[in-house]
């Protein structure tokens, strides 16, 4: 049997297909765009599967169009991360427009979770806009930030306010790399306080697209003093978890 998991997020859609042995058979990714269901259909049509489970913000729309079961991204990320790193008890997921810290029971079930507020402060979208303001490509943003010797203090977490703060730092002639580092520092501070609210020890599995940012992963383990484990394809953990849950319900 083939089990698919689709994660329809605010910024991107991921799809993973696994077999009965939980082995990944294939995966796809696309930008969500303005018509998530059309995009989702396109991706779904490219693969064959027996069962599908949806997660992410678009899950309820998908449920209506495809008559498929759904699961929240919290449970999906928890299951995906726990399967990739058996025994892990804490997950940090920073996606396009939200971030969450999840504590797990030993059996992988969700024990407690925290999510960011309604705005996109401290998420992938925040980093993307800030990279643009500073003239960096998003793929290089983390590397550039790591090159700075120190981070400049950025106090605003709101995307709109932080952008004007960054603009005024640029106007003062400050180094772009140091500004970039400061932005990463502030996102990390926020993530750490969220993690500390749910769990105080043990390794952290870092999932979501932002886990591909080298500065984020480096700073996280440095400032938290806990081991941070990064999946090979962190942005697929939610869809992988959904596929596993599709397998589980049989």
């Amino acid at each position: 049997m083939r089990y698919a998991g689709i994660d329809i997020g605010s910024r991107s859609i991921e799809l993973v297909v696994v077999n009965d042995a939980c082995k990944v058979l294939c995966r796809f990714q696309a930008d969500t765009g303005f018509d998530p269901m059309a995009k989702a259909k396109k991706i779904v049509n490219r693969v064959s599967y027996d069962r599908i489970m949806a997660t992410g913000y678009g899950r309820n729309l998908f449920e209506i169009s495809f008559d498929a079961p759904t699961v929240t991204e919290i449970k999906a990320h928890a299951r995906g991360a726990w399967t990739l790193f058996p025994g892990s008890q804490t997950v940090l997921d920073i996606g396009g427009q939200d971030s969450k810290a999840i504590a797990l029971f030993e059996n992988g079930n969700v024990k407690k979770f925290e999510m960011n507020d309604r705005c996109a402060a401290g998420t992938g979208k925040f980093l993307e806009i800030m990279a643009g303001t500073l003239g960096f490509k998003i793929e290089d943003f983390g590397k550039e930030a790591l090159m700075a010797e120190k981070g400049l203090n950025i106090s605003s977490m709101c995307t709109v306010f932080a952008e004007s703060e960054v603009t005024s730092l640029i106007a003062k002639g400050q180094s772009r790399q140091e500004i970039a580092r400061g932005l990463h520092d502030s996102v990390i501070r926020r993530a750490i306080s969220m993690i500390n609210r749910v769990s105080s020890e043990g390794d952290i599995v870092f999932t979501g697209g932002v886990a591909k940012n080298l500065c984020m992963t480096t700073l996280l383990s440095e400032k938290l003093g806990r081991k941070v484990r990064i999946p090979d394809e962190p942005q697929f953990v939610g869809s992988f978890g959904a596929a596993l849950l599709a397998l589980e319900i049989g």
Binding site: Y57, T72, I74, K75, D98, K111, M115, R118
Partner: peptide, 17 residues
């Protein structure tokens, strides 16, 4: 109503627990 979907995720995830 602006945070309805964010609340829905939290509430559904809680019910899953």
């Amino acid at each position: 109503e602006s945070d309805t979907e964010q609340l829905r995720v939290r509430i559904e995830a809680y019910l899953e627990m």
